[in-house]
C-alpha cells in the first residue's frame, strides 16, 4: 500500500513571533522551524504505524514550502518515511490553503497513492482546509477528524473512526481516499542516529513550483490564491491573572464567583 503524508514546515510552538514590516505575516528572521510538536508529526506517526503493521507499505512525505522545508522532510525520513517530494516555492510566492491543496494534488497525481493523510490543521495557519480540498482536487472521498483507522488491504476497505460533536462515528470507506487525522495522545517516535544517517541517502525530489502552476490555470481557483491576508497582528500582551487574595478556601470561592458574575459576566 502506498501512503502519502502532507507535512508543513512551520515555526516551532515555543518561538516568539514578530510582525513582518509588510504587516501581513510574521518576520521569519530568527524563527526556528520544525515539523515536530505539530499535528503533522502525529499524522506521520500514524502512517508509520500503518507501515509497521502492513508489510510492503511505503510512506512518501510531501511538502509545499521554501527551500528550508527540506529540513522538515529530512526529519520525516529520519522518523521512517521512505521517500520525499518538496514543491519548492520562492519566499515571495503567495499561497493560501486551497492553492497549497491544488499544488499538493498536482504532485500527488504523479505518485502512486492508496491513502493520503494530512493533519487536522497546520500549526501555523490552523486553516484545516487542505484535507477536504485535496479530496475534491484528487476526485477522492475524504473524511476529517479521524481518530482511528484500520486498513484491510485485501478488500481495499478502510474502517475509520471520526469525531462528531456528541459522539463518534465508525465509517467504512473504499480507498484511495484522503483523511485528516485528529489524533489523541500518540507519541511520535524519535529518530535514532542510524536512521538520521540513513535518511540522508533516501530519495528527496524537488519540484519547482513553476513546473506545476501552468497546469492549475484551468482548475477551479486557478494558479493564484483566492483569499488574501490583509493584516497579521499580535494581541496586546495580557496583564496576567488578577490574583484573588483570601484567608480561607470559602472566601476564595466566594470572591471568584462574585468576580465571574459581576465583572466577567460569564456566570
Amino acid at each position: 500500500m502506498h501512503l502519502i503524508v502532507g507535512v508543513k514546515h512551520v515555526p516551532d510552538a515555543d518561538t516568539r513571533l514578530r510582525v513582518d514590516p509588510s504587516g501581513t505575516t510574521y518576520d521569519p528572521d530568527g524563527v526556528k522551524f520544525t515539523i515536530n510538536n505539530t499535528y503533522d508529526e502525529a499524522t506521520l506517526e500514524e502512517s508509520l504505524r500503518l507501515k509497521d503493521g502492513n508489510p510492503g507499505t511505503t510512506v512518501h512525505v510531501v511538502s509545499v514550502g521554501p527551500p528550508r522545508a527540506e529540513e522538515g522532510l529530512r526529519a520525516a525520513l529520519a522518523m521512517g518515511a521512505d521517500e520525499a517530494t518538496l514543491v519548492e516555492v520562492g519566499t515571495g510566492t503567495e499561497l493560501d490553503p486551497l492553492l497549497t491543496a491544488r499544488l499538493l494534488a498536482a504532485v500527488i497525481r504523479g505518485i502512486p497513492h492508496d491513502l493520503v493523510l494530512v493533519g487536522r490543521q497546520a500549526a501555523d495557519d490552523e486553516a484545516g482546509q487542505v484535507g477536504s480540498a485535496l479530496g475534491h482536487y484528487l476526485g477522492l472521498p475524504s473524511a476529517g477528524y479521524v481518530t482511528g483507522l484500520e486498513v484491510d488491504p485485501a478488500s481495499k476497505r478502510l474502517h475509520i473512526k471520526r469525531y462528531v460533536e456528541g459522539g463518534e462515528e465508525t465509517l467504512g470507506m473504499e480507498f484511495p481516499a484522503v483523511l485528516s487525522i485528529l489524533k489523541g495522545a500518540n507519541d511520535p517516535r524519535t529518530p535514532t542516529l542510524p536512521n538520521i544517517l540513513k535518511a540522508r541517502r533516501k530519495p528527496l525530489r524537488k519540484v519547482p513550483v513553476g513546473d506545476l502552476l501552468p497546469a492549475l490555470e484551468t482548475w477551479p481557483g486557478g494558479a493564484k490564491p483566492t483569499s488574501r491576508v490583509t493584516a497579521f497582528q499580535l494581541p496586546p500582551p495580557r496583564a496576567g491573572a488578577k490574583i484573588l487574595e483570601y484567608t480561607s478556601p470559602e472566601e476564595a470561592a466566594g470572591k471568584l464567583l462574585a468576580a465571574l458574575r459581576e465583572e466577567a459576566k460569564v456566570l
Binding site: L98, A101, G128, Q129, V164, E165
Partner: peptide
C-alpha cells in the same frame, strides 16, 4: 465551525474555486 462545517466548506470552496476561511 463544527466538525461538519469545517469539513464541508473547504470541499465546497475547492469545487467553486473561491476563497475559504475557517473559524
Amino acid at each position: 465551525a463544527t466538525a461538519m462545517g469545517r469539513e464541508w466548506l473547504p470541499r465546497l470552496g475547492a469545487a467553486l474555486g473561491t476563497g475559504v476561511a475557517t473559524e
